[in-house]
Design a protein around this nucleic acid. Structure first.
Lengths: 340, 340
DNA sequence: CTGTTAGCGCGTTCAG
DNA sequence: CTGAACGCGCTAACAG
């Protein structure tokens, strides 16, 4: 049975109603509901019964206000359609389970102005930590973050100095390693297919690392195409077609990520180009779908779940912002695959 | 410049600090920040200046408590890794822009018990509406929803009676239409490859609609494989291989969704089976990636963005729960593609 | 083991 | 156009 609520009264059941019904004081109900302080088993049962009968739902606005602690973690990701971010959120959720904390998620669409608005609006909920992607924020956003004493985790990237905590891996290094790996496998004529660098600075870092590795082997990109929009399979497909149409003959094409690379594979399959035999293809991210292809994509796996989980674990372990910043490398691995 | 905050004081800047600085009362600051009531332009500018100088961030816990209105919408989706839900969230965000409302997102992992917990915990934030996926909820969850006077939108599905508002399309009908369409194209020997029905009831509805359409044409599935886990490309690939290994020779295989169907296409490409010529393949959802294949996937597009957007528009337009329930059909379209 | 007192920071009255 | 008083629902800090 689930109590009343009846009629016009807008308000729900409050603590005092539960307390009255159980013939105890409000604070006792509050303690029982929060498993705090010593409580007689008999009282607890009586109160829990009253809670059930009334259908009481605590008001966390009031609770948070009274205790100056919201048990909220603000999270801002650039996108949800790029599957890597839902995977990071998976790690965040995993770390939050059983802590009583709840994530409030914002999506910035890779737009720093939107990120700034979201930071303001999430900070208004007095979260106990904020999780962001990358190091680029507007000055106003930085000021708000500094001004609020909350812990700040910047994810994905560790190539710059963090505000507080950075968790991710070096994208420049990953690009560099991919270049060394491919050179080591005998490739010499490198093509590059990328997407918008303005929005996705990490893609540019990987590109720069790749180019640096090539230079160390006295090589350079023979051809490069960059799409203006965000990464997508269709964009990768179109861009590879455009690159090949230019007439140069790369023996390998490195893509800005797996989404783009998948499109590259599809172009090859449609055009009768045999991946690896005729043209090698290399991605980044190590998405499951790339590994389910007839020829698994050669790529690098980043550890998105671990990145999200580590950030939360760390930030909840130490709630005050420490004096010095910390950087945690969650690494990456080459997936040899069958396309390079 | 961004004010102090200095030293040990845990608390941030409050309204009264801003008020003191601007030499007005708190309520005046409050009004200015909420664009409410008549305000002298001079005062407004002075106050805004003080807000900037102090780096004041409103406390929504306090604001919500005082006004009994949180400007929050609770959203619970079964998954974020299934791309259809991020797309629904995209529609929700689009509808929320400029309204001052903010979505709080929970992920249930297709688990009704987790959904129940999330409902309890989101309701504690006193949202002004709740958005859920599907019609299946635990009795306790239903009770909490009924008990809170908030509006409730149930998305994706319109095959049952909603609590308040349902937005989506009929999955049974979609399955039925796909069957009629494929029969109309001359297919007779139908195979089915699906994933876990316990978790994804809508997949089962589509299956049942398909089977019904076949029965109307005096046909039946010649072979059916269902994976126990969630849908994935790899699962689709494995399941199609398993189905074909059984020796029956379908001329078309219908998959529970595009993820699975993509795996089917990959299996065919790897095994030298020509999609459509040797074996037709049909999916559901109309994901972009399926349309970027060398041979675009034949499938049905559901309108996820519209579903999310419509639900929020509707629910914000009328904030009290209306006397009677409403059902909005956002439809679907057949994408002919090239695999069936 | 339980209760009392006093706010948390803001918005809703109602007066000026 | 601006302000004073009050309370939203809950919890911290003491008592007892």
């Amino acid at each position: 049975m689930v109590g009343k609520r009846l009629a016009g009264r807008r308000q729900g059941v409050t603590l005092s109603e539960v307390a009255r019904r159980a013939a105890v004081s409000e604070i006792t109900v509050s303690r029982i509901l929060r498993n705090t302080g010593p409580i007689a088993e008999a009282t607890r049962l009586r109160v829990l019964q009253a809670v059930r009968e009334t259908g009481y739902v605590p008001n966390r606005l009031a609770g948070g206000l009274a205790s100056s602690g919201s048990k909220l973690v603000g999270v801002i990701v650039p996108s949800l359609t790029n599957i890597v971010f839902p995977e990071v959120l998976g790690g965040i959720r995993a770390a939050l389970v059983g802590t009583g904390f709840q994530a409030v998620i914002g999506v910035s669409d890779y737009d720093l102005a939107i990120e700034e608005e979201l930071i303001a609006s999430l900070l208004a909920w007095r979260p106990e930590a904020m999780v962001l992607a990358g190091f680029e924020h507007t000055p106003a956003a930085r000021a708000m973050l500094d001004n609020s004493a909350v812990r700040v985790a910047e994810l994905m990237d560790i190539d710059s100095a963090p505000i507080d905590l950075a968790v991710g891996h070096s994208h420049w290094q990953a690009g560099h390693d991919s270049g060394r790996y491919l050179v080591g496998r005998g490739y010499r004529r490198f093509g590059y297919v990328g997407h918008d660098w303005m929005a996705d600075r990490r893609a540019k870092l990987r590109h720069d690392g790749l180019v640096a590795a090539l230079a160390e082997a006295s090589l350079a990109l023979v051809e490069s195409v960059r799409n203006v929009g965000p990464s997508s399979t269709q964009a990768g497909r179109d861009a590879l077609a455009a690159l090949l149409a230019r007439g140069s003959t790369p023996d390998v094409v490195v893509f800005s990520n797996d989404d783009m690379a998948l499109g590259g594979v599809f172009h090859c399959l449609g055009a009768g180009i045999r991946p690896k035999d005729d043209l090698a293809l290399f991605g980044f991210n190590g998405l499951d779908i790339g590994q389910a292809l007839p020829m698994p994509l050669s790529t690098m796996r980043s550890n998105r779940f671990l990145t999200g989980k580590t950030a939360i674990d760390r930030v909840l372990a130490q709630r005050e912002r420490p004096g010095k910043t910390e950087i945690i490398d969650t690494g990456y691995q080459i997936l040899p695959g069958a396309t390079a």
